[in-house]
Design a binder for these strands. Structure first.
Lengths: 245, 245
DNA sequence: GCGACGATGATCGTATACAATCCAGCCCTC
DNA sequence: GAGGGCTGGATTGTATACGATCATCGTCGC
């Protein structure tokens, strides 16, 4: 918890979306729900409904949805409203290609600058992911895996790439939700642990190669052919996430 | 013009910001003005003022500003409103580092897939940039240069990277406005022409190396130490840009 | 004369109201 | 019975209203 505390509240140098904390709260709640796959792709997100859930007017909900749409995790259809995005197979491939390019760079730089505290942070994240798996909390495990990648980007001290990657990680959850054959997609605990060792040795080249292979594995584990039915009710799926990290 | 026509209207597979065309119009007008450096960093963007200029209510203007803030070209300060961003020196360095990483990838892929039509498009862009320079229209020349880079990303058929790059190009205009010693920053006509030749020969490795050097040159041409005073009136700076391409 | 304090204006944050659009179900017609 | 058109409800698009916050400027006291 303490380790996570330092990274959960900030989702980058906070980016250019200062406008009120409430819309940020809504964004984060939805984003977390998506990352943990409690909100499945295709789920309709009615403005009124969300407003009721969060006790906010449509104005704020709209702002949140637009922000999420900008991140690519929500799609807005004119006069039809918002829905959790359903990435296509091509989207998925492009997404992982982009991740390989960006993460090759972040992990390489991270390897050059990593500190003992950073290593501890990463280890804690892996442990949390393992714990989540042990308790059958697959959604949480997936989120921890994403946080692991983001933590590396943060250590690279490259805010631009970190920001981009956070978008990509968010969309990855959707891809995994749609195409992962639930077994163990994206829960490469062992590979993450291996990456930590490499980082500890400050070996940028090996780190890069390993990261690319790791992402290849995740992508290969996907079943890029079919997608599940529709979605679930939505209503109370969100609440449980806000503060509970 | 005809060549440009095909790429100007779309700024990626249109991304998740369907919400009305009017806010898109406002976004594009402001973004173009920034790209052409008619709107200088630090310029205050009052919601009422913009609403008056575009004949829209604050609701739409706010949506546009939030979107631009998400792109990093505008900063929102709570209770103080929006202003054109003023990237710091560190921002500038991180920006170009990210551009090197992303554009190394896009130009490499573009080199593998480029068509004759693509080459023509690129040549037209260079020509337009040169024309703009000849007529002392520095702002337009800078925009054309950005369009050149974006066109390459589009040819790479990697929508994700294209989208990221369009953010980075937009921010680059700000950096150049702040730190470019007006001489000839970012107007590497010759280098762009050279890149076209390399692309025509489909040489990914050389294209990558050349692109990185090109970006290095742009960055090196900057005067990363000082920034200009404040800004200009704003009011009628925007109008002149919308349709006029 | 100078600094601190309070009023005033401008600007943003949020909520709500109204208009436009779309979807679904029903009824009518063939 | 099937198809098409229509109407009602729901949802979003946009505008406006009101409250909160901040900056500025004038005034008052020292």
């Amino acid at each position: 918890m303490d380790v996570l505390e330092s990274l959960a509240p900030e989702r980058s140098p906070d980016r250019g979306k200062r406008p009120s904390n409430r819309v940020t709260t809504i964004c984060r709640a939805i984003q977390t729900a998506i990352a943990e796959q409690r909100l499945m792709p295709g789920t309709r997100l009615s403005e009124d409904q969300l407003g009721g859930i969060f006790g906010a007017s449509r104005t704020l909900v709209r702002a949140a949805l637009q922000s999420l749409a900008r991140d690519g995790v929500v799609v807005l259809t004119r006069n039809k409203g918002a829905a959790v995005a359903r990435p296509t197979v091509e989207d998925a491939r492009a997404l992982f290609e982009a991740r390989r390019i960006i993460e090759a760079a972040t992990v390489s730089r991270a390897a050059l600058r990593v500190t003992a505290a950073d290593i501890a942070t990463l280890e804690a994240l892996v442990k949390r992911g393992r714990d989540a798996l042990d308790t059958q909390d697959r959604g949480r495990a997936i989120r921890m895996s994403g946080e692991f990648h983001l933590a590396i980007a943060r250590m690279a001290k490259q805010p631009v790439l970190h920001e981009f990657l956070s978008e990509l990680v968010a969309r990855s959850s959707l891809v995994i939700a749609l195409y992962g054959h639930s077994a163990h997609s994206e829960c490469g605990d062992a590979e993450h642990a291996g990456l930590i060792d490499i980082l500890r040795n400050r070996d940028p080249a090996l780190a890069t190669a390993t990261m690319i292979r790791h992402l290849d594995h995740i992508e290969a584990d996907l079943d890029l052919v079919q997608q599940p039915p529709e979605a679930r009710p939505l209503s109370d799926i969100l609440r449980a996430s806000s503060g509970a990290d």
